[in-house]
Design a protein around this nucleic acid. Structure first.
Length: 297
DNA sequence: TAGCCGTGGTC
DNA sequence: TGACCAAGGCT
């Protein structure tokens, strides 16, 4: 295949995916016109490693309570952790509060537009910075999440799985899929992501329904099994320190007053694990000690 | 960079 | 039923 043909195919992949998106993309809250940069930022933080269906109700409550960065910044960090409820990875709530504070104090209460400034905010990494710049402000940046990585691996590279993160490779590939036009570029980012979420899924991809199956390199190769490296498998959660942290934090969230070590001892039998978990929560700022008791910050 | 960080749903 | 997966970030 010549370079020209390849470039043309990338353009076709991009266009077909956008056309599919217009027809099949979900009407998610953060995609509505005028949703606002703050709402999009909050949604992106909440969506980190967390399914859409669990984010939507929490996001709506969050934005009703804290409609601006300044409003969240004026709350206690612990209120953010409590309002996070059971979304998981509660340090995200703490980071979001810290980001709101930085935005209020250093950026005039307005969510920054450019990737480097966004990256400097706590809890905002490469994906989230690009997503906010692209979706909230319409900047032309490749946005690469786990869905996009999978689509690129399959459709462009002909591999069954994305394997371990390969940021440079995937950013370059996504960059090539982005049209010059700003609106079309933003739509492409959303469309490829959505294709990975709804059709080109991790387990049972719906290849028959795929708008770019004719151009998919993985399909053309006969769906070879993935042979490359894989991401390390997650450790078992049941009985882990992570579980203990979660249980202790749930105890702190549920209480209006500081919690005693005796009360914490009720949530988990193993004292060593309790100490490790509690110490970790203190280090992370998710808990603070008052005399011999503990509470949210 | 590999390991850690929650929680719940799926097959 | 247990492993896998989910719009990642940080160290």
């Amino acid at each position: 295949m010549t370079a020209e043909t390849a470039a043309a195919d990338l353009g076709t992949i991009s266009r077909l995916t956008r056309e599919w998106f217009v027809e099949h993309g979900r009407d998610l809250p953060w995609r509505q016109d005028g949703f606002g940069a703050w709402g999009i930022l909050v949604s992106e933080i909440m969506l980190q490693q967390t399914p859409v269906v669990r984010v939507i109700p929490r996001l709506e409550q969050w934005l009703e309570r804290w409609p601006t960065p300044a409003s969240l910044a004026s709350a206690a960090p612990g209120d953010a952790v409590r309002a996070w409820e059971r979304l998981g990875y509660p340090r995200r709530a703490l980071n979001l509060h810290a980001a709101a504070t930085a935005i209020t104090e250093h950026h005039g209460g307005v969510v920054p537009e450019d990737v480097p400034t966004l990256l400097a905010l706590p809890g905002i990494g490469d994906y989230t910075a690009r997503a906010v710049a692209a979706f909230a402000y319409g900047h032309r940046h490749p946005v690469v999440d786990t869905n996009v990585r999978r689509v690129i691996a399959r459709a462009v590279l002909g591999q069954g799985e994305a394997g371990p993160p390969s940021t440079k490779r995937d950013l370059a590939a996504m960059e090539e899929l982005l049209p010059r036009d700003l609106d079309a570029a933003r739509a492409t980012n959303a469309a490829v992501m959505e294709l990975g979420a709804l059709v080109c899924t991790a387990r049972k991809p719906l290849c028959d329904e795929c708008p770019i199956k004719q151009l998919c390199q993985w399909r053309a190769a006969g769906y070879p099994a993935y042979e490359g490296k894989r991401q390390a498998t997650q450790k078992r959660f049941e009985g882990s320190d992570r579980q203990v942290r979660g249980l202790i934090l749930a105890e702190l969230r549920a209480s209006d007053v500081p919690v005693t070590t005796d009360e914490i001892a009720q949530v988990w039998p193993d004292a060593d694990q309790r100490e490790r978990a509690l110490s970790g929560l203190l280090t992370d700022g998710l808990a603070v000690q008052v005399d011999s008791e503990y509470e949210l910050p």
